[in-house]
Design a protein around this nucleic acid. Structure first.
Length: 505
RNA sequence: GGGCCCGUAGCUCAGCUCGGUAGAGCAGGCGGCUCUUAACCGCAAGGUCAGGGGUUCGAAUCCCCUCGGGCCCGCCA
């Protein structure tokens, strides 16, 4: 049931009147329109106060502001290419049609105009309108023309209003799409094959996170939404697809906060016969391309240059264990037992459960002592084996794995890469250790994946990148919600849930 | 889960300290205006002050609860 109000009733009445006069408020087409940018280009050659009457132009878009000035009216029309002013004059349109149009039109309406490119006496690129067509009458009024939509809740719940009121918001999402296209372009050009792996499956594995659980009627059993694409993609490498990637949504049944969303876009790349050093070079070159694209698409603004610079070398590199010991003053931290690590974690105020793994405690210590010290994009390398069940043991550092994580100040993670563990028996053992330590509800054991490994996974490197967070960093968004078109929000309570109904009158 | 803050007209915001008939701008209505660009001038209209309860002669304002949102912390990691 749609809520109605006085303003909407008035606009509905206009629709009725339009129809009574034989004018269709929602027609089917407006052929031959050109973008407002093209009209502005033509206007560059026209002196103020004059028009180019050698040929007419057609333009269509949404009315923003309407300035009625007696028998002349100025209206700002916005389309996908920018804005252009419409110049409506009673003597050009005819007195009666001019008055009729003024009584029908409101800001927010979608209109088409035909006329001559012209420049107003004050120098504004315009279309001197000879004919006007209503293309879609807006019943609901648009947000306030100067301030736009400010309420952060409304911006998220009704993104279309945010977009139509805020060019900056439109630009941010346009840049997001172009950055995703650039990621694909870089990987495609390097011979990687884009694939799609299942969202639904019996086991949500590849990361430690709570899955969304739903149900397949066909299978008559529970299925889970993927929390990572890692294990599917490595099966493909076993199958001989040596360079694959997937850029898509993964789902984690957890909180939405400044840097987390229950559904987010992740890039995972797997590359056979390469190791994590190769992967780091690939990621660094990808980052540079994204930085270039950001500057290019932001018109080279100073702000964009500054943000992009963070994605160019030189990057900081820190060894997980060395840096943790340096910052904390602890010695031999990676060799300490679970009990001792637990008490160290308690000492820094962590409340993670006492039965957590050694890896969890090490991560907590690292988060506390090291992450806040990052002052630029930083690669953290060679983590203790206990923190990482899917990575291969380090070729020269005992007790470590070949891994890098990428952090951006003020301290959120952008990505994670390994030289992949491809020894099936060791993989099985590590899965079982995880299960024993953390419990089945936290770690899904994908038995079928281990079976695939037994057929031989070549030496392989893989990476997972949080695409939303990369977009955040490159667009200067303070919250992940600003780079998601439709972030998950709690549904508004229905009117019937708002407490007792009014007493019967 | 804890702390702090916000919710007033379709939109942007005052009013809340210190309780006394709910205000402005935009948008909309009516009138005026042929070069404005947040156009301007005049008139009239527009409210479940998020919802519920309490205190009080009197509550947008003070107190409690609920809902929605924001920020910080914790957790998922």
């Amino acid at each position: 049931m749609e809520e109605s109000n006085r303003l909407e009733e008035e606009r509905r009445a206009k629709v009725t009147r339009l129809r009574a006069e034989g004018l269709e408020p929602y027609p089917w087409e407006f052929p031959g329109r050109v973008g407002s940018d093209r009209i502005r280009e033509s206007c560059a050659r026209i002196p103020p106060g004059e028009a180019d009457r050698s040929g007419s132009v057609r333009v269509a878009g949404r009315l923003r502001a309407v300035r009625v000035h007696g028998k002349t009216t100025f209206a700002d029309l916005e389309d996908g290419y920018g804005t252009v002013q419409l110049l409506l004059r009673a003597d050009a349109l005819g007195e009666a049609p001019y008055g009729r149009w003024l009584s029908f039109l409101d800001p927010g309406d979608i209109v088409g105009a035909e006329g001559f490119a012209a420049v107003s006496r004050r120098g504004e690129p315009s279309v001197e309108v000879g004919g006007l067509t209503l293309l879609a009458k807006a019943i609901a009024p648009p947000p306030e023309k100067y301030h736009g939509l400010q309420d952060p809740e409304e911006k998220l719940r009704r993104r279309y209003l945010d977009l139509l009121a805020s060019p900056e918001s439109r630009e941010r999402f346009r840049l997001r799409t172009h950055l995703l296209q650039e990621i694909r372009a870089v990987l495609d050009a390097s011979g990687f094959l884009e694939v799609e792996t299942p969202v639904l499956g019996p086991v949500a594995s590849g990361a430690a996170a709570a899955p969304f659980v739903t149900r397949s009627n066909y299978l008559d059993q529970e299925v889970r939404l993927r929390i990572a694409t890692e294990l599917s993609l490595k099966r493909l490498v076993v199958g001989g697809l040596e360079k694959v990637y997937e850029l898509g949504k993964v789902f984690r049944n957890e909180d939405l906060d400044t840097t987390h969303s229950p559904e987010f876009t992740e890039l995972e790349v797997y590359w056979a016969y390469a190791d994590y050093h190769d992967m780091r070079r690939l990621v660094e070159s990808l980052f540079e391309r994204l930085a270039d694209r950001t500057v290019e698409l932001s018109g080279g603004s100073e702000e964009a240059r500054r943000r992009a610079a963070a994605f160019r070398p030189p990057f900081a590199t820190v060894d997980f264990v060395d840096e943790l010991e340096r910052r904390s003053g602890l010695v031999g931290v990676a060799e300490k037992g679970r009990e001792e690590l637990a008490s160290l974690a308690r000492g820094i105020g962590s409340t993670v459960p006492a039965e957590s793994t050694r890896g969890t405690f090490l991560d907590k210590l690292f988060e506390h002592y090291v992450e806040p010290t990052f002052d630029r994009l930083t690669f953290v390398v060679d983590h203790p084996a206990a923190t990482t069940p899917l990575a291969k043991r380090h070729r020269s550092k005992p007790g470590r794995v070949e891994r890098f994580e990428i952090f951006v100040p003020p301290g959120y993670e952008l990505g994670n890469a390994y030289t992949e563990l491809n020894d099936p028996d060791e993989q099985e053992r590590r899965f079982r250790e995880q299960l024993a330590e953390k419990g089945a509800e936290h770690y899904a054991y994908d038995e079928e994946y281990v079976r695939a490994l037994r057929h031989g996974l070549p030496p392989t490197t893989g990476v997972g990148l949080g695409v939303d967070r990369i977009v955040m960093a490159l667009t200067g968004a303070a919250s992940i919600k600003e780079v998601l078109l439709f972030p998950l929000v709690r549904p508004r309570p229905l009117p019937s849930d708002r407490g007792p109904a009014a007493p019967p009158g």
